[in-house]
């Protein structure tokens, strides 16, 4: 099952055999849940909404599979659904949370881990100030590692526009975080 292509797994979701469908679902979840969750958490800004969006995304994937649709690019389809669900959440203002400081990642090194965690919290906060189109381009590029061509296809924009959005998003973040990064550098040089 683990060597099956995404498209095969998607087909197996509508298998009459419940055990087979469950195995396919589990495999697709194992392959993409973490990346989708990362995307949702960055877009929504908190893990509570991210969990809700992730759940709804997979339910929609299941429903789509039952409609006997042919799927050629499952990852793109998954991210498109996740994006739509995130946008719907944002549009309907269904979120009860604004920003989640506990949305930590793994610290690259134990040295200065506290400062890193603090800075990461600031980054999350700063990201919520970005326009949504910049934020999602940045997340897709920096956190999910998609190529600009994939981002362009996913967002329905040109590759150049995708590059510009990522550049502007990072510049904006750099300007917001510059004082903190400077302070961090000074305090670590004093140690």
């Amino acid at each position: 099952m683990s060597s099956a292509a995404d498209e095969e797994l998607f087909q197996q979701l509508r298998s009459g055999n419940r055990r087979e469908a469950e195995a396919a679902f589990r495999e697709l979840y194992a392959r993409y849940a973490h990346r989708l969750y990362t995307y949702c958490a960055r877009i929504m800004g908190n893990r509570y909404d991210a969990h809700d969006v992730l759940q709804e995304t997979f339910i929609r994937i299941w429903q789509s599979a039952q409609q006997e649709r042919r799927m050629s690019n499952v990852p793109a389809f998954l991210f498109r659904i996740a994006r739509n669900v995130c946008l719907n959440f944002k549009r309907d203002n269904r979120s009860a949370y604004e920003f989640d400081e506990e949305l930590h990642g793994s610290s690259p090194s134990p040295v200065g881990a506290v400062e890193q965690a603090e800075l990461f919290g600031l980054l999350q906060q700063a990201m919520t100030q970005l326009p949504l189109e910049y934020r999602e381009a940045l997340v897709l590029r920096e956190q999910l590692g998609l190529a600009y061509a994939e981002i362009a296809e996913l967002l329905g924009i040109t590759e150049t526009t995708a590059k510009v959005r990522v550049f502007r998003a990072k510049e904006k973040l750099r300007q917001i975080l510059a004082p903190y990064i400077q302070e961090l550098r000074l305090s670590s040089s004093q140690r």
Binding site: A33, H34, Y37, T38, H51, H104, G105, S106, E142, K170
Partner: peptide, 10 residues
């Protein structure tokens, strides 16, 4: 470096 940190899994 900050941007490439991955959050915990769901």
């Amino acid at each position: 470096r900050l941007l490439r940190q991955e959050p915990e899994p769901p």
